[in-house]
């Protein structure tokens, strides 16, 4: 009787992905150390994300690093600034090692002062009408499309909303802006200024419902000492960490460490 044939060697089975999503969306890697890790690789491309926090929590710096890292990767990045003049922002950016002035000079990193744009468009009233809101959205859309912008920061949404005021108009503005940017494959961060103990993520409370994601920044006290903390509250299209992280704005960029929970803390 012939000996039974040796079974053919088989390749070892690959480990099963236990929590893999059915579809993995393309990511816009922020390039910020640690942040991409807790976002599962980055922000889903085209998402509109609220970066919410009180003063001095690092919102603008996080957004500027997002733009610089994008420009470095060949993704044209645009800052629409309402609260600070571009010259001053570039001056502040130059204190960080990750900033490269050539990204500004070669047009990879574009700064636009929104008040100057308002003037150019003749939008001088205290409150924007429905038609004027439409003009603003179309102007931003055209800017992003013409320049081929892949990353946009609006600093701040709160300042823009001061001139929109009504909740329905804000909701409509954000829905249309978000759709417009998403259609162009542009990932956007909108800075939202909130009070230290506001208990919501935006000035009007409607913004967080519209956006795809919310990154919350706040200050917390430990026995009188203040720590800056970051948490991803919401991010459509990806699994993400919901833990809290202490952040530090270093010369090489934003760094993150797990927030230790061993003692009582309070928001400030």
């Amino acid at each position: 009787m012939d000996a039974p044939a040796e079974p053919a060697p088989t390749a070892p089975a690959a480990p099963r992905a236990l929590m893999a999503p059915a579809t993995v969306l393309e990511r816009c890697a922020t390039g910020i150390s640690g942040l991409d890790d807790i976002l599962g690789g980055g922000i889903p491309r085209g998402n509109m994300v609220l970066v919410s926090g009180s003063v001095g929590t690092g919102k603008t710096t996080l957004c500027l690093e997002f733009l610089v890292r994008g420009a470095e990767r060949g993704e044209r990045s645009l800052l629409l600034s309402v609260t600070e003049a571009s010259d001053k922002l570039i001056q502040n950016l130059s204190t960080f090692e990750f900033f490269r002035a050539d990204l500004v000079s070669d047009g990879s990193l574009v700064f636009v002062d929104l008040p100057a744009l308002y003037n150019k468009l003749g939008l001088e009233g205290e409150e924007l009408s429905a038609d004027e809101i439409d003009i603003v959205i179309r102007t931003i859309h055209d800017l992003v499309r013409t320049l081929g912008v892949k990353r946009l920061v609006l600093d701040s949404l709160t300042s823009v909303c001061y001139r929109i005021r009504r909740d329905e108009s804000i909701r409509d503005f954000m829905l249309r802006l978000g759709q417009s940017l998403s259609d162009l494959g542009c990932t956007s961060l909108l800075v939202s200024e909130i009070g230290p103990t506001q208990g919501r993520y935006s000035m009007h409370g409607v913004e967080e419902a519209i956006v795809d994601g919310v990154i919350l920044l706040w200050n917390t006290r430990r026995q009188g000492d203040i720590l800056r903390v970051l948490q991803i509250v919401k991010m459509r299209g990806t699994a993400h960490s919901r833990a809290q992280y202490v952040i530090e704005l270093t010369p090489i960029g934003l760094l993150m460490a797990p927030h230790l929970k061993g003692s009582q803390q309070e928001g400030v």
Binding site: R222, Q223, D225, L227, V246, I247, E248, T250, I252, L255, M256, A257, P258, H259, L260
Partner: peptide, 14 residues
């Protein structure tokens, strides 16, 4: 302050 333990982690990381 030595109470900012996360800061120690962050500075070493830096």
């Amino acid at each position: 302050t030595p109470r900012a333990l996360e800061e120690i982690m962050l500075r070493v990381d830096y």
